[in-house]
Simulated assay, not measured.
Amino acid sequence: MKLQHHLGGIENLGPVNTDTRVFVEPWEKRIFGIHTVMMAESVHLAEARHAYPVAQLPTTFGNTWTWASLRTGAEDMQPFEYFKYRYYEKWLGGIAQFFVDQGYITAQELAEKSAHYLRQPDAALPDKPNAALGAQIDAYLLNGDSGYNELDTAARFKVGDTVRIADPEAVDHTRLPGYLRSKKGTVDVVYPGAFSYFVSTGVDGIGQPMPVYRIAFDAADLWGPGKSEAHTTIYADLYEAYVDAVN
C-alpha cells in the first residue's frame, strides 16, 4: 500500500478536514450508488453466505466487484494525482478505469459521454428501472457479502495478551495500517468465528479464513508522547496474519 493510504503519524501534512457530512456534493451520492449496484451484481455473491440469484440477474455485468476492487483502483493512482481529487472523485476514477479495462466502454466513448454531460449538465441520464435488480440491491444492502466461517482451531491469542504487530513485505494491497507495523498492543477482543478478505493479498498474509482481533494501542506508543494526547487508546481490527507473539 502506497504512502497516501495510511498517513497516521506523518508530520506537516496540513490541517485535518473535520467535516462530518458523508456526502458534501449531490453527485457524490450517485457515485456511491454506482459502486453499490456494482457490488450487488458482482459474480462473487454466488458464493456468499446469503443466497443470491446472481446467475438469473438481468444484467450484462459479469465481473467481481468488491470493496477491494474499489480500493485497488484508488491505490493505483499516482500519489500526486491522488491528493488532487476529492474522496468520491477517486472512487469515480477507479470505477471508470475498471469499465474501460474490462471492455464495457472504450476510453474514447467515455470521453465523449463525459464531454456531453459537461456541455449539458441537465441532460437526461439513462433510466432503465428493473424490479429484479432493485430487489437484488435491497437484499444486498440488508445481508451483505461477508463470509463468516467457524474456526477449525483455537485462536492463537486471547484477551489481555500483549502482542507485536507484524511487518510483512509491502504489496499492492494490505489491510495493515502502516503506522501499526512492529508496534506492541494488547488483545482487547477476539471476534467469534473466522474471516477472509475479498481477495488474497499474497505474501501479505490474507487469504484463507482466520481469526480477527481488536488490538488496543497506547497512542504514545505509536506516535510518541509529544504528539499524542494523554490517556488515549487507539483500537484496530486486525487479521491474525498481522499479529505476532512478543518474544
Rank of each mutant, 00 (worst) to 15 (best):
H5R: 09
H5A: 13
G8E: 05
N12Y: 08
N12C: 05
V24P: 01
K29V: 09
I31G: 07
A40G: 14
L45A: 13
E47Y: 14
A48R: 08
A48E: 07
H50T: 13
A51V: 13
V54S: 09
A55W: 09
Q56T: 15
L57S: 14
T60I: 15
T66A: 13
T66N: 12
A68H: 14
S69C: 14
R71F: 13
D76K: 15
M77G: 09
P79A: 12
P79W: 14
F83I: 15
F83H: 15
K84L: 09
R86L: 10
Y88K: 06
L92A: 15
G93N: 12
A96K: 14
F98A: 11
F98K: 12
V100K: 08
D101G: 13
G103Q: 12
G103K: 11
E109L: 12
A111F: 05
A111Q: 15
E112L: 14
S114T: 15
S114K: 14
P121Y: 10
P121S: 09
P121G: 06
L125W: 13
P126E: 07
A135S: 14
I137K: 07
L142Q: 13
L142D: 11
N143W: 08
D152Q: 11
A154T: 10
A166K: 09
D167W: 05
H173E: 01
H173Y: 03
R175E: 00
L176V: 02
G178D: 02
S182P: 00
T186D: 04
V187K: 02
V187S: 01
V189C: 05
V189P: 06
Y191K: 04
S196I: 01
F198M: 01
V199W: 02
S200K: 02
D204F: 00
I206Y: 00
Q208M: 06
P209H: 06
P211R: 03
A220Y: 03
G224M: 01
P225W: 00
G226Q: 10
E229V: 01
E229Q: 00
A230M: 01
A230V: 06
T233P: 02
I234L: 04
I234A: 02
D237L: 03
A241V: 10
A241Q: 04
D244F: 05
